[in-house]
Amino acid sequence: MSGKIIFFEERNFQGQSYECVSDCSEISSYLSRCSSCRVESGIFMVYDQPNFTGQQYLLTKGEYPEYQNTIGFKDCIQSCRMVPVHKGLFKMRIYEGTNFEGQTHELTNDCDSFKDHYQMSDTQSCNVMEGHWLMFEQPKYEGRMFYLRPGEYRNLRQMSGDDLSFNSIRRIKEA
């Protein structure tokens, strides 16, 4: 299933619009600003900076007439990435230290608190083997989030751009 998101310059779906059906590294190439959006199908990760950087937020099918208040962005959406729907098993390993060092645990399901379930004081690297995941700054899937695709992440704090600590994780499944 493919995705489709429509960005609007003004709040409440007003002004110029831009339809996006894949990744877009710089929405400002199409609109002067983006102040509301509508996800017609699929799942999208949106970013407050160009080139898939900065603060991130996951959007599922629905309307976002004034998303700044809803998702906590101070500014406009600047880039977006379509999240492929993963069918099948989810599998990843989390590590307490950078470069896959220290205590490790294998995950196949959501975890609302690394500290409570695994007695891990920190999670600084991971290896995503199957599926797409959303890691959160706070327990119980709260706070800032970070999108993880299959691959190796040797230093999560460095990659997040602002020295985030991660405390919970959820699988990204079809909405």
Rank of each mutant, 00 (worst) to 15 (best):
Gln14Cys: 12
Ser36Arg: 03
Cys37Pro: 03
Thr70Gly: 02
Pro65Asn: 08
Asp122Tyr: 10
Ser28Leu: 14
Lys173Cys: 15
Ile77Pro: 03
Tyr18Glu: 00
Phe100Tyr: 15
Ile6Thr: 12
Val21Thr: 13
Ile6Val: 13
Ile169Thr: 00
Leu59Val: 02
Thr123Trp: 09
Glu101Met: 13
Phe100Cys: 09
Cys24Ser: 09
Lys91Met: 14
Asp23Gly: 07
Asp122Ile: 06
Val46Pro: 02
Ser125His: 05
Thr98His: 08
Ile71Pro: 03
Ser2Lys: 12
Cys76Glu: 08
Asp163Thr: 00
Met82Gly: 04
Thr70Ile: 13
Ile71Met: 13
Arg38Thr: 06
Asn155His: 15
Gln78Met: 15
Leu58Val: 01
Cys76Trp: 09
Pro50Arg: 11
Ala175Asp: 11
Gln78Lys: 15
Arg154Pro: 05
Leu134Ile: 04
Ser168Pro: 05
Tyr47Thr: 00
Gln68Pro: 01
Tyr57Leu: 01
Asp163Leu: 09
Cys20Asp: 04
Glu19Val: 07
Ser28Phe: 10
Gly62Thr: 01
Glu137Val: 05
Arg93Pro: 03
Arg38Val: 10
Arg157Leu: 09
Asp23Pro: 07
Leu89Pro: 08
Leu134Lys: 03
Asp162Arg: 11
Lys87Gln: 12
Leu59Met: 11
Gly54Glu: 03
Asp48Ser: 05
Val128Ile: 14
Ser125Lys: 09
Met129Arg: 09
Met92Phe: 07
Ala175Met: 10
Tyr57Trp: 14
Asp110Gln: 06
His105Leu: 09
Asn109Leu: 15
Pro150Trp: 07
Tyr153Ser: 07
Val128Trp: 05
Asn127Val: 12
Asn155Pro: 08
Asp162Val: 02
Met159Gln: 15
Arg33Asp: 10
Ser113Val: 04
Trp133Ala: 07
Ser29Tyr: 08
Asp48His: 04
Glu63Met: 11
Tyr147Val: 04
Met82Phe: 10
Ile5Arg: 02
Gln56Phe: 02
Phe13Ser: 03
Glu10His: 11
Phe8Asn: 01
Pro150Glu: 06
Gln14Trp: 04
Arg170Gln: 12
Met145Cys: 15
Tyr57Gln: 14
Ser168Met: 08
Arg11His: 11
Asn155Cys: 13
